[in-house]
Structure formats: structure tokens, C-alpha cells
């Protein structure tokens, strides 16, 4: 049915649009921290409603298609994936908003230290999001498996940042408030990467029909080998 194909394409476009908005929010949230730009941080917070609106639109559209078109097989898996992906994207948007709130607070105090690992982490998390959207569009299983593996790198950096900040806090209690806020940001980025991983898992479900959530890394690698 040609009209159904158009509807599916339209849904895909909306997801892509939502993903790019989220990606922009993450990028700007870190920029507002690193460049101490409170104005930019407030702007990111202000535009989160666009992401929320798309979340609702995509849900409504997906539910409508299930009710009216009774999708089957790959069409069904695509729509279910769309519905689940948007929840992850919406949460990622919220986390970018959280980063901005901490950035605004941090920008009111002297900078604790030069930000090195945080931007690196953000770059990886953002890259995971961009690539997972690409894998979703291109139905690329190899890319999706690769994204899942990159989550380890982000987890490693989170621990590294926490240890470093712990050292600051022990050395000088006056740094505690700022160090905790930076730790939060690291945690937000780690969560963003987790959501990108969830999306990669859903993309694999969409393509292969296999649910790999909650599998061990070894089992996933075995699947990838097949």
C-alpha cells in the first residue's frame, strides 16, 4: 500500500528530526558548560518543549498506524521501535536540560578545573546518538552492534571523572559543591550513552527481530558473530 509506505516514511522523518534536536541540545548543553555561556544553557532549556511535542506526535502517529493499518512483520517492528526510541530520545533531551541547569549553577562560581574528560565523554555520547540514528535509517546492524560496545568507553570515563573529582573534594572541602555538580554532569552523559545503547538495541530488534535487551555482553557478541 503506497499510502502506508508514505506514512511510515513520515514517521521515520519525525524520529530523525527529534533525534537531531536532541543531538543539538546535548552539544549546546556541553558548550554552555565549557564556554560558561548561561544564555545558551537557558536557550536549550527553553527549546526542550519542541522535543516533547515530537515525542507526543510520534506516539500518536504510531498508535494510529497500529490501529488503522494493522502492521505486520518488519512494518510492525519498525513502528514498535519508533514508539520505544522516542521515549529514549525524550529522556536524552531531559538529561541535556539537566546538564544546562548544572552548567548555569557552575557558571556562577569560579571554574574548578579545565574541562577535558567531560567534553570527551560528551563527544562519544553525541557520536553514539548520531550513529544510532544513522543505523536506524540505514538498517545497519554492524553500526548498531558497534554503538553498544562504545558504551563501555563512556562508563570508563565516568569512573575516571568521579575519581579525579573525589581527589579534589578530599584536598579542599570548598570544592565539594562544584565537584558534585560536575559528577552529576558526568552521570547525565553516562545516562545519555545508555539511552543511545537502548536505541541501538531497538534498532537491532527492528532489523533482525531479536530482542537483545538484558543480554550479557558475551551473548550479544555471540549473536553478532552469527
Amino acid at each position: 500500500m503506497a499510502i502506508f509506505d508514505e506514512e511510515l516514511a513520515h514517521l521515520k522523518e519525525k524520529i530523525l528530526k527529534m533525534g537531531l534536536l536532541v543531538e543539538g541540545s546535548i552539544r549546546d548543553s556541553i558548550k554552555s558548560l565549557v564556554e560558561r555561556d548561561g544564555e545558551l544553557a537557558r536557550e536549550v532549556i527553553m527549546r526542550d518543549h519542541q522535543i516533547n511535542a515530537l515525542d507526543v506526535e510520534i506516539d500518536e502517529e504510531g498508535i494510529r498506524l497500529i490501529a488503522l493499518r494493522q502492521p505486520k512483520a518488519s512494518d510492525l517492528r519498525f513502528i514498535v521501535t519508533a514508539l520505544k526510541i522516542t521515549s529514549d530520545l525524550e529522556r536524552m533531551g531531559d538529561l541535556a536540560e539537566d546538564i544546562c541547569e548544572r552548567a548555569i549553577e557552575l557558571n556562577e562560581e569560579p571554574q574548578l578545573k579545565p574541562y577535558i574528560d567531560i567534553p570527551r565523554m560528551a563527544e562519544i555520547a553525541q557520536g553514539m546518538l548520531v550513529d544510532v540514528l544513522d543505523a536506524f535509517i540505514k538498517k545497519d546492524t554492524t553500526a548498531a552492534y558497534d554503538i553498544i560496545k562504545r558504551d563501555d568507553e563512556v562508563d570508563g570515563l565516568t569512573v575516571q571523572i568521579f575519581n579525579e573529582l573525589l581527589f579534589f573534594m578530599i584536598q579542599d572541602p570548598r570544592t565539594v559543591s562544584r565537584a558534585i555538580k560536575i559528577t552529576y554532569i558526568a552521570k547525565y552523559l553516562e545516562r545519555i550513552a545508555d539511552h543511545a545503547t537502548n536505541i541501538a538495541e531497538m534498532v537491532l530488534y527492528m532489523i533482525e527481530g531479536k530482542i537483545i535487551r538484558h543480554m550479557t555482553r558475551e551473548d550479544i557478541e555471540r549473536l553478532e558473530g552469527n
Binding site: K72, A73, S74
Partner: peptide, 14 residues
């Protein structure tokens, strides 16, 4: 209806 093994089945049911 969720993940047919054969491509032709997929084409027919979708």
C-alpha cells in the same frame, strides 16, 4: 506475523 523467516512471506503479509 512478527518476523517471518522467508522474504516472500514478509512481502505478502506486509
Amino acid at each position: 506475523f512478527t518476523n517471518p523467516a522467508n522474504k516472500v512471506t514478509e512481502e505478502y503479509i506486509t
